[in-house]
């Protein structure tokens, strides 16, 4: 079938529906229906097993007044801020990698490795690194004469930041890859022209390249923030939100309520609040980073 035949098929409404249906169906069953259901379960007093009792908005009102929830929301927002700030580092690294330095190819692959590991493996790795007595980090600190090295995962005032490190490390490769691809897409002729006009490397980076990949940057900001707000895995494995809630984030709090406390109704309500918060933040970020003029090379 040539290109013509393909076009004919794709213009037939039936075929369009036929090709879209499976994905749409899965999306409906696995995402949208559960979303609506969790909003609905939030209206119930339900332990997840027995009878549901309708209690109206009580769960949502409790959620809004729940100090522990806002505490975990604060931690999620902190993570969002740190993830966004770290984008600057990733961007810088990508600029260097894209500027034809020696070994850029190898370095790019090295940065990608954490992304290839499963979250649980990363969590286990960092739990070992942070081990207060036998971990490589504290063994090193003690060997250079630090007498009481920090108790990374046990001290409530540093545990959150100790977990941020592997989270940011985990996603570095992902963002570097995106930026790298975007930078490689900029036509060489533009750079050439700038160079002939006498622009320095720094000027080329900030005045030519950066504006050209603005769209990509704004997408990564949204990805980083939304990803942070709903973040769950490393935290769950490394500390389960502890000690005493010091590393609790919104998603781990939701999980704890629904599955450890058997408070499925309340957990669902918290989950729904998390969704609402994420939607609002995404909307605001999109507004703030929107670019009107369309770029053409």
């Amino acid at each position: 079938m040539g290109l013509n035949g393909m076009n004919k098929v794709m213009s037939n409404k039936f075929y369009i529906a036929f090709y879209i249906a499976p994905a749409l169906l899965l999306l409906l069953i696995l995402v949208f229906i559960p979303l609506v259901l969790s909003g609905y379960y939030g209206l119930m007093d339900w332990d997840g097993i027995g009878e549901k009792t309708f209690i109206g908005l009580e769960n949502y009102i409790n959620g809004i007044q729940d100090k522990l929830f806002w505490n975990s929301a604060f931690h999620s927002f902190l993570l969002a801020i740190f993830s966004t700030l770290s984008l600057v580092i990733y961007l810088t690294v990508s600029f260097i990698l894209a500027s034809k330095i020696k070994g850029a190819d190898l370095l790019r692959k090295i940065y990608l490795i954490p992304m290839l590991l499963s979250s649980v493996a990363i969590a286990q790795l960092w739990v070992k690194i942070y081990n207060p007595s036998n971990g490589i980090l504290n063994v090193f600190l003690m060997s250079i004469g630090v007498e009481n090295p920090p108790l990374w995962l046990a001290n409530p005032s540093i545990v959150l930041f100790a977990i941020f490190v592997p989270i940011l490390w985990q996603y570095a490769g992902f963002y570097i890859l995106i930026y790298y691809a975007a930078l490689k897409n900029i036509p060489e002729s533009l750079i050439e022209a700038a160079r002939i006009d006498g622009a320095s490397a720094f000027q080329i980076a900030t005045r030519i390249k950066l504006p050209l990949i603005k769209e990509v940057v704004s997408v990564t900001i949204v990805l980083a923030i939304v990803g942070s707000l709903k973040y769950f895995d490393l935290i769950y494995v490394m500390t389960a939100g502890g000690p005493n809630g010091a590393s609790e984030v919104m998603a781990s709090y939701m999980y704890k309520l629904a599955f450890a406390n058997y408070n499925f109704g309340y957990g669902s309500a918290i989950g729904f609040l998390l969704l609402v918060i994420t939607l609002i933040v995404t909307f605001v970020i999109r507004k703030l980073t929107a670019t009107k003029d369309k770029l053409e090379y």
Partner: peptide, 16 residues
């Protein structure tokens, strides 16, 4: 992994 992914995961597990 957060709301949507967890939900997806949970509902996948549930459906499965």
């Amino acid at each position: 992994m957060g709301k949507k992914k967890t939900l997806t995961l949970l509902s996948t597990a549930f459906a499965l």
